Structure formats: C-alpha cells, structure tokens
Amino acid sequence: MIITRTPFRIPLGGGGTDLPAYYSRYGGFILAAAINKYMYISVNRPIVDNLVRVKYSLSETVSHRDELKHDIAREALRMMDIEDSIEIVSMADVPAGTGLGSSSCYAVGLLHALHSLKRNYVSLHELAEEACELEINRLGKPIGKQDQYMAVFGGIRAMTIDREGKVTIHMVPIDNATMDELNRNLLLFFTGITRPAENILKSQSSHIEQEKKDVLDNLHYIKELGYQAFEAIKTGNLTELGLIFDRHWNYKKRLHPEISSPYFDHIYEEAKKNGALGGKIIGAGGGGFFLFYIEEKHAKLRQAMSQLGLREMRYHFDWEGTKILVNLFNGLR
C-alpha cells in the first residue's frame, strides 16, 4: 500500500490569470499559500483478482480502467499505462466544490502514488505538469495551473506563467514574524455552499478569447494587484495586503454574475463592519470559503460570521507539498 498526502491551497492574488486563454496572450501571475488541510490517496495492488476498485464519494468496481466513471482516476491510470489490478481510495479534510483546489489535489496525489508504485522518479515540476496535462489538456477542464503547482510544491509561492505556459515558481521571502501574523490575521469561513466552478471559468475563458474589454481590463488589474500583494507580504506590510484584498474583491465580482450574490455581498459587508480590511471568495466564486484579512477584534468577526451561519476553518500553512506518507509496496502481488 502507498498513501500520499497533498495540501489544499488558498489564493492570495492574481486569480484567473492562470487560465490558458489569458496567459497565452498576456502571461499570468499567481500568489497563493498551501494550508494543512489535505487530500489523502491510498493505492494498493489486489491479491486475489485483477479488478479495478476506486472509492471516493461513490464506489466503483470494474474489470478495466476504461470502464471507470471517475474521470481523473481513469485518465491517470491511462497516463501511467495501468489497465487493471489496482485499488484507489481517497479521503479529504474538505469536500469538493469549495474552491480550495480539490480536483487538482486528487490528480497530484494519485499521480504521485502511481509513480511511487511503478518506482518512477519524477521532479516536482514534472509532476505538476503531468497533473496539468491530465486535467486541462486530456480532460478539457476549464481551469488554470495554480492548483496543481501549489498542491505539488506547498508553501507560500509566487508563480509566473509565460505565453507558452511555462511556469516559474518560487517561495515568497517572508520572515517568521510576518508569517505568524499572516496566519493569525487571515481567517477562513465556510459558506455552507458547494458548487462546480466549470460554468464560471468557461465563461471567463470565452470572454477572454472574444477579447471583451471589461473582462480583460479587470484581469489585467487583478494581475497588477497580485504583484502588489507579493510586495506587501515580502515587505511585511500586511495592512496593505488587506486593502488589496478589498480592491480585488470589487474587481473580481465584475468578471461573472455568479461569482457573488446578494447573500455573499451581505456577508462581505458584515465582515467589514466587524473589522475585516478586505476579503474574497476562494476559487472561482459562487460558494465555498470566504477569506478575510483582519488585524484587530478577531473574536468580533468570528461571532458575526457565526451568526450568519458560517463556520470557521482554522489552519496553518503547509510547507511540504505533496508527500508519500506510507510506502509498503514490495513489488509483489
């Protein structure tokens, strides 16, 4: 048996500029942090038969990988040239559809486990690019590249993406005091609403391809805010980071009508009334988690969000990225 652990992530700046439709024209920039909430994948070779078993929110048992309904598992097995005789089980700290990058965590964690099973060495960049190839090119998911890279590398990272799709990723220089303050002041609250991101992301990509000026202007400004957020963290000016979040949210809402709603706008305004300098919905929007930056009166904000029915998810940053927790595979069936 092999078990991998892969972190979820929270975006801090530049979201949307990692979509192929955007970076292939203008280049992208992403700022994000991995957190200690994880996707766990276990892989095993069955002893008594040659069946394929995949357990997630459903359970599948089939004779051949091509019969699987779980698209990521099916495509990962194709990429690794495994047709049968495999068991895959997944568990996660956070459900799908919450904007924390769960599908990419699954892809990265499974590919990592399968490479270990086959005793293949791949670099971190290769693993991230394989996950991008699986989700974006093979499955045609309308997503960007930040989720896969953050799942692989962990940490607080800045990513630049050139027009050919090449990703350069590096750790944001941050001292321990700033890191502790950032962790203390960034609060996550679950709205209780899960949703697929595909419709919003497909619409954004289509508008980029059509060169709609308002969408492009908003994304250009969001990328600029990403650079500003990077400088704010690097220099320890976290008050400015909170104010950047506020500007970012007002521009992000303009990208698609389903990103926010009167209910979400009310949550945001109540958060600001209770001390938040700024915030955002994590991921494409429409549900999932709100992330707020607050420097004082944390308890007041927590109480206000609780009264609105939101549940806080406490966390710390993850610095390891995807890793093998258990490897008991001896090469024999």
Score class of each variant (00 low, 15 high):
Ile35Ala: 13
Val48Tyr: 14
Tyr26Asp: 01
Ser42His: 14
Pro46Lys: 01
Asn36Thr: 05
Leu31His: 09
Arg45Trp: 03
Phe29Tyr: 14
Tyr22Ala: 11
Leu31Asn: 04
Ala32Ser: 15
Ile30Lys: 02
Leu31Ile: 11
Ala34Tyr: 08
Pro20Ala: 08
Tyr38Asn: 04
Lys37Gly: 00
Arg45Ile: 15
Pro46Asp: 05
Phe29Asp: 05
Asp49Lys: 11
Arg53Cys: 04
Ile47Ala: 05
Pro46Arg: 02
Ala32Gln: 09
Pro20Lys: 10
Arg25Ile: 07
Tyr40Val: 09
Pro46Val: 05
Asn50His: 12
Met39Glu: 13
Pro46Thr: 03
Asn50Lys: 12
Ala21Val: 04
Val43Glu: 14
Ile35Lys: 13
Asp49Phe: 06
Tyr22Val: 11
Ile35Gln: 14
Ile30Tyr: 02
Lys37Pro: 03
Pro46Trp: 06
Ala32Gly: 15
Ser24Gly: 04
Phe29Gln: 02
Ala21Glu: 15
Leu31Cys: 03
Val52Thr: 03
Asn50Met: 01
Ile35Ser: 13
Ile41Ser: 11
Tyr26Met: 01
Asn50Leu: 08
Tyr40Cys: 03
Gly27Thr: 08
Tyr22Arg: 12
Val43Ser: 11
Ala32Arg: 12
Tyr38Gln: 09
Ile41Val: 15
Tyr38Lys: 02
Asp49Glu: 05
Tyr23Phe: 15
Tyr26Ile: 03
Ala34Val: 08
Pro20Leu: 01
Arg53Ile: 07
Arg25His: 04
Leu51Asp: 14
Ile47Trp: 14
Gly28Asn: 06
Leu51Ala: 06
Tyr40Arg: 05
Ile41Trp: 10
Asn44Ile: 03
Asn36Gln: 13
Lys37Val: 09
Ala34Arg: 12
Tyr26Lys: 12
Gly27Lys: 11
Asn44Ser: 15
Ser42Leu: 14
Val52Lys: 11
Ala33Met: 14
Ala34Asp: 13
Met39Ile: 12
Asn44Gln: 07
Asn44Glu: 15
Val43Phe: 08
Ala33Glu: 10
Lys37Gln: 11
Tyr22Lys: 02
Ala34Pro: 09
Gly28Ala: 00
Val52Met: 06
Pro20Glu: 03
Ile30Ser: 06
Gly27Asp: 08
Asn50Arg: 06
Ser42Glu: 15
Ser42Met: 14
Asn44Pro: 00
Ala33Leu: 14
Tyr40Ser: 09
Ile41Met: 13
Gly28Val: 05
Asn50Tyr: 11
Val43Met: 12
Val48Pro: 03
Val52Leu: 11
Tyr26Glu: 04
Ile30Glu: 00
